[in-house]
Design a protein around this nucleic acid. Structure first.
Lengths: 332, 332
DNA sequence: AATATTTCTGTAAACGCTTACATTTTTATT
DNA sequence: AATAAAAATGTAAGCGTTTACAGAAATATT
């Protein structure tokens, strides 16, 4: 259908090899012929056939990101970040979500085996043993986005949850003067959540504040879980003056309970969260929370991947931590 | 690197042609050889080289969706819908967002010209003249997701904004007994917004309610715009009893103003929205709004595209409207 | 048993490009 | 002017498939 180098070769009265070289700006093509060919190419509206080139070059100029799903707060931002870097490297991005019908491991193997992509960025909630094994013996460029239980031999990018929680707690103590700070945990299997708790505890310790057992409440990252936890905290005899929810959803749950009790944030009790989801901006008063630079995660992962892709052999495995920042609202 | 049909051919002592046929389940290959080959393929962990196949078949098994951005409320859902259908058709999906660096038109042309994809789904806020021209003379499978000012010759999918707004207004009147209903418009250049207004007006008319000029207020789809519009409405001498905001964001703005005036929703004034964004679920009282089945848009677009891809020649251009539904909250 | 028919398999070209190697043309050196 | 060196171009193979066509093997028909 479309124009091929053969067409151009005919018109320029040269061989297709010369055309190929001219279009790839090869140095040893006479200036005049190069110009002629490039002019013809433009005239004929020639675009190289990507597929043919791939077949011989064994390089697709496509990377893929595989994630649990494509919606939600985080994933789009990550995709955006990756896409940005991919674009700059002249690469295309294939987004694959491993929904029910399609399993993650399968996806990776497929992609790579079919030589469809040059590399993949993999985001998984947790790394199964099967996956771990595959990753450990992997022989294609891959970067994993995931907090913990990582595979040593595979490049990874994650959020510094510990630092984020530490900073927030420290902020509450030293900038805002709170001492009675409760913490609502996330699910304990979730390593992100666990790191946040550790950050909180470390900050208390470094500030010589003893932690109270009954001020560390279990939660499940949902709004309902936040409500429950908050109710329990506020029915204690010794009530905290500030509540640090391990994520914004649970913080939103706290808001509900607090306002239903006729209490005021932050006068009666302060609330802070973690994640900086867009909802946090709509809460009144605006929630103070820990911002997770999601697009930076994507960008970092992509950059890492391209490092592998370019360096090839002598690339050293890296594990990057993305630091967080505090978004100051009016909730404390 | 990986196993090719040649490898299998050698081991099976047949030609590569036979291997190719056997693996494609061609009917005239002897049963025993077919089985041998398929067994070998499995043993050797053979996966067909997608690129080579593409080169001869001239079919990439990839479609692409091009959208303004990948984040936000709608886009991820649309992507999800498209991906679902693509997967079922054994296709891959490339997501391209036309961010600043990359322009939409360029993207389409690139994709198609390089024969990178078999078809594209295009979502654009509005159709420029340049784009219109390209679409009108297009010769590749494409489906546009977009409300109005569509190109007749190109398949399209859009939301039935008119019907949605009509239903909601009708619901307010006949199910909830409101008669004094104000409307906050979206930006007038936005055809979706305009259709919503028309739906509202039509419902009033059909119920013999005369519309009040000063109850139709301009808005801009933002939360701030909603606040402004709401303030104006509530400072009128003749105040409406219900406010229909053309999108949820503006409805959220109304919530702010109303609560700051010490009024109650829905007792003092009812508020309803349009879009059913996730925020609407978090507002208290929960917002009654028009649900837009975003994933269905994606699915429909994808189905349409595959119809073109399969039918090829004798495909009739279609313009689909996705109907909406009312989500009943406690705000009216 | 000889021929016709059907079933199966192999040969080779094609897809559009890149690139090692060979060959020709141009330029430099003597 | 003859030779050497450098620059430009062409030839052809190859990337991993698919597939038209031809040829061989197996089966059916007389």
């Amino acid at each position: 259908m479309s124009v091929t180098i053969k067409e151009i070769a005919d018109r320029a009265h040269v061989s297709i090899a010369t055309v190929s070289r001219a279009l790839n700006n090869n140095q040893n093509v006479k200036k005049s012929t190069k110009e002629l060919i490039q002019k013809l190419a433009k005239e004929l509206n020639y675009t190289p056939n990507f597929v043919a080139r791939t077949l011989v070059k064994k390089k697709t100029n496509v990377i893929s990101i595989i994630l649990p799903e494509v919606g939600g707060e985080f994933f789009p931002e990550i995709i955006k970040g990756v896409d940005q870097i991919a674009y700059r490297n002249n690469y295309h991005l294939v987004v694959a979500s491993s929904h029910s019908e399609r399993n993650t491991v399968e996806s990776i193997l497929n992609f790579m085996a079919q030589s469809l992509v040059d590399g993949v960025i993999l985001m998984v909630p947790s790394i199964s043993n099967q996956l771990k094994e595959i990753l450990a013996t992997k022989k294609f460029p891959i970067v994993v986005i995931n907090g913990y239980n990582k595979v040593e031999s595979v490049d990874s990018v994650g959020i510094d949850n510990f630092q984020g929680a530490y900073s927030m707690t420290d902020y509450l103590i030293n900038k805002k003067g709170y001492k009675d700070i409760a913490f609502i945990r996330g699910p304990s299997i979730n390593s992100d959540a666990e790191q946040r708790k550790l950050g909180y505890l470390a900050a208390l310790k470094d500030n010589d504040i003893e932690y109270q057992d009954d001020w560390i409440i279990n939660g499940d990252f949902t709004i309902k879980g936040g409500e429950l936890a908050c109710s329990r905290l506020l029915s204690l005899i010794k009530k905290p003056k500030a509540i640090f929810a391990a994520n914004d959803m649970m913080a939103a749950g706290c808001y509900k309970v607090i306002s239903s009790l006729g209490l005021k944030i932050p006068e009666d009790v302060a609330v802070v969260g973690f994640d900086h989801i867009s909802l946090s901006e709509f809460l009144t008063p605006k929630l103070t929370t820990v911002h997770v630079p999601t697009d930076e995660i994507g960008r970092t992962a992509a950059k890492l991947l391209f490092k592998i892709l370019n360096d090839d052999e002598n690339h050293e495995v890296q594990h990057r931590k993305i630091t967080t920042g505090i978004i100051i609202g009016e909730s404390c």
